[in-house]
Amino acid sequence: MKALWRRRPVILTAFLLSLALMLFFGIRALVSTIYWNDPARANQPVADWMTPRYVVMAYGIPREALGDLLELDPSALKRQSLAEIAVQTGRTPQQLIAEIEDLIAEQRQERPQP
């Protein structure tokens, strides 16, 4: 090790650095696998970047119910973020997200998933 350090200081440093990086990323990959395997985290919260169609897909709510809430024609949903729709309908994104979360909870009660 000492001989290497005398002869190849730069490469030895780079070697140790990349070894440390490998361990760092490897451990993070492992931790994130364990973290996301927790079923409690399977449901991502509603977020302002989501589009109406994404909400329909992710939470399994009917298009029509969401269309009513967003004041949009359910057959002509566009690629538009909830943030944008909130501005158009005179709400804050937080308000809109809360309303959608209520809708999702309502729908789950009406049609409980197996």
Binding site: S18, M22, F24, F25, S32
Partner: peptide
């Protein structure tokens, strides 16, 4: 997961080569 896995693989390759 993918970001960290690719990071670990790349650092691993560099480690082996060095």
């Amino acid at each position: 997961l993918l970001g960290n896995a690719v990071g670990a693989l790349t650092a691993g390759l560099v480690t082996v080569l060095l």
